[in-house]
Design a protein around this nucleic acid. Structure first.
Lengths: 239, 239
DNA sequence: CGCTAACTTGATCGACGTCAATCGTGGTGG
DNA sequence: CCACCACGATTGACGTCGATCAAGTTAGCG
């Protein structure tokens, strides 16, 4: 963990319009400046939170990807959610309870950190912050509900299509996609562990998508070649 | 829908210690009494909320069961959650957004209703109410995350064991279980639609549980005969 | 005493897991 | 510069869980 003394300037942050901290900063700048703030770098594979600890900070991802996961009693890993730049780590959890999952850096990662629970408690006094939190949480709940439908009822192809469409959406919202091309650091194991599939089967399914000319994938970059058909595959999931 | 003029007296409510409204009532009785309150009865199978509408009331279940569901494009139903007495209907959703699911009465149902969003907005001024809401929501989030792991990684037996153990827990918290016997109005289709299984397969799996002497089930009542082994089957799920 | 919803059971089939081997590639040390 | 290694991608053979389809059977209900 590399903790810098010099904090980045929020006004220069390209994500300020989509982040929790940006919302707070806009709502009450002087109060925000008084917060206990850090800027941390984690290298890929580094564990950021370990399941069972009480979270001490809320992190906002500035760059890089991370993911929340559990290790099942069978030893297999289950990935609950991915974090991309702009996302908050630790927003949907009860800050007074032990974390129900671990969080690991998927790529090199830069995080803005804020001490809990002060940050939330103070922030909630501001309506715009409050709305932001409520919206994110109910968005996350809807996402989880969708995910349950997806993994419990649909075969591999729509699950994968759905994951890719969702990530595309999130990355585009944050200005991190160049048309239908974007960074995609997930391995096939990550995809499998997130969707309840084996890496072998993910491979076969991705192969099919490539053969059909629906997407191309390599060098940590994904390009959707035929959004029409990919959406078609994914949209059976929407209830 | 049968809307009574005479409201039940909260002080007589056997669930007041576990409900959202009970918490509010305790925190601020006169303010609570000024709320716009209703008491509604729905007969079994009646639709309470239809997906896509903006919820106008928050309901607290006084007696009976309900469930939240979506209809998939294939025409199949997916059950997202069950509501038992003491649960709030409409607590985890964004009250300003259209509902992401429909809600249907599973048995005859009695609900205490409160107009939204006033009830939430006013209530949040009280710390105990606020804590209650936050705890319920993060509980629900944890439950959804568990459910994703459950349905995406485990075969039918642990899924069913897990569902039964969870319902047992919730009913016991509310004093609605007589030892390990409790009301169980779900049909095998309900179970299947909640767990991503077909009714036929649920039937075979329940048959196994019965043959093994782990539980008995009939007449809308379930008895856990061997909690030890049932927990064993379910606990592979805990991450 | 029909009628319907729910439960039960059997036969067959397909998607996906498992296991195992191979290939490709980037990083590392000699 | 090259041998080596580890991790990820790829591919094949085979087995299994649960879906599907199709009968029955039971139970509640007017």
């Amino acid at each position: 963990v590399d903790r810098n003394v010099t904090l980045p300037v929020c006004n220069d942050c390209t994500l300020q319009n989509v982040t929790l901290c940006g919302t707070y900063h806009t709502a009450a700048q002087t109060e925000f400046d008084a917060l206990d703030r850090t800027f941390d770098r984690f290298s890929a594979r580094r564990i950021i939170y370990r399941k069972g600890v009480r979270p001490s900070s809320l992190f906002v991802v500035q760059s890089g990807w991370a993911y929340a996961f559990r290790v099942l009693s069978s030893g297999r890993r289950h990935i609950i959610d991915f974090f991309v730049p702009g996302d908050s780590i630790g927003l949907h959890v009860d800050p007074t309870a032990p974390l129900p999952y671990s969080v690991q850096a998927l790529t090199d990662l830069a995080l803005c950190g804020f001490t809990l629970p002060n940050m939330i408690d103070q922030g909630l006094a501001h309506p715009s912050f409050c709305t932001f939190v409520r919206t994110r949480v109910s968005e996350y709940v809807r996402m989880l509900e969708n995910q349950i439908v997806c993994v419990s009822r649909y075969p591999a192809m729509p699950r994968i299509a759905c994951l890719i469409i969702n990530l595309r959406e999130r990355l585009r919202e944050r200005g991190l996609a160049d048309g239908d091309t974007f960074a995609f650091p997930l391995t096939q194991s990550h995809i499998g562990d997130a969707l309840g599939l084996t890496a072998a089967h993910v491979n076969r399914t991705l192969g099919e998508l490539r053969n059909e000319g629906i997407l191309s994938l390599g060098q940590g970059e994904l390009t959707i070649l035929d959004l029409e058909r990919l959406s078609e595959l994914a949209k059976s999931v929407e209830g």
